[in-house]
């Protein structure tokens, strides 16, 4: 095995929590986030010899986690629509603050692209150009989604502040 990159366990220890947070922000459900992180790192583990030599292994796992989260979110949404109800039964750890719960609930109200760019910009601290590269879309589109998403999220959080019990109605 190449010794150029970090060992898998070092990489996992250093990035796992960030990927869980990333998936949590995208899905709004901590159980799903953990599962997505597990799946993501299992894929990285499976092909670590090549992933570890990437320019940024973390970018690789973040992209996989993003794709998994988006797919899961879509499936969950379809399932809720088919069931004719929206239970809004997102799970959160007791340690998660109400502000964070409100943020995640607000993110769940946004279109997928807006949510994804907001998470990449504010949580992963990626510049617009890199987000555009990761998502394979023009930087102008990223800027537009970022602007609209931020405004919509601020409004959602504001509404949540005004009515703190409304979390279950989101999504």
């Amino acid at each position: 095995m190449s010794t150029a990159g970090p060992s898998f366990d070092e990489f996992y220890a250093g990035t796992a929590a960030r990927i869980v947070r990333h998936a949590y922000a995208l899905t709004g459900d901590l159980d799903d986030a953990r599962d997505i992180a597990q799946e993501t790192f299992a894929r990285a583990w499976q092909r670590w010899s090549s992933v570890s030599t990437c320019d940024s292994p973390e970018a690789w796992v973040r992209r996989v986690a993003t794709n998994l989260a988006v797919n899961r979110w879509r499936r969950a949404r379809i399932a809720r629509l088919l069931a004719g109800r929206d239970t809004g039964t997102a799970t959160h750890a007791p340690e998660i603050s109400t502000d964070t719960v409100a943020l995640v609930a607000g993110l769940r109200t946004l279109p997928q692209r807006q949510r994804t760019v907001l998470v990449l910009y504010y949580l992963a601290d990626l510049p617009v150009q890199q987000i555009a590269a990761e998502l394979g879309c023009p930087a102008g589109s990223v800027k537009a989604w970022l602007s609209r998403g931020r405004a919509a999220l601020a409004a959602a959080v504001r509404a949540d502040d005004a009515n703190p019990t409304s979390e279950a109605s989101h999504a």
Binding site: A16, A17, V20, R21, Y24, A25, L30, A33, R34, D35, A37, Q38, F41, A93, E95, I96, S97, T100, L103, V104, L123
Partner: peptide, 9 residues
């Protein structure tokens, strides 16, 4: 959220 403690698998 960046500072939040989250359970890691």
């Amino acid at each position: 959220l960046k500072r939040a403690e989250v359970p890691v698998p």
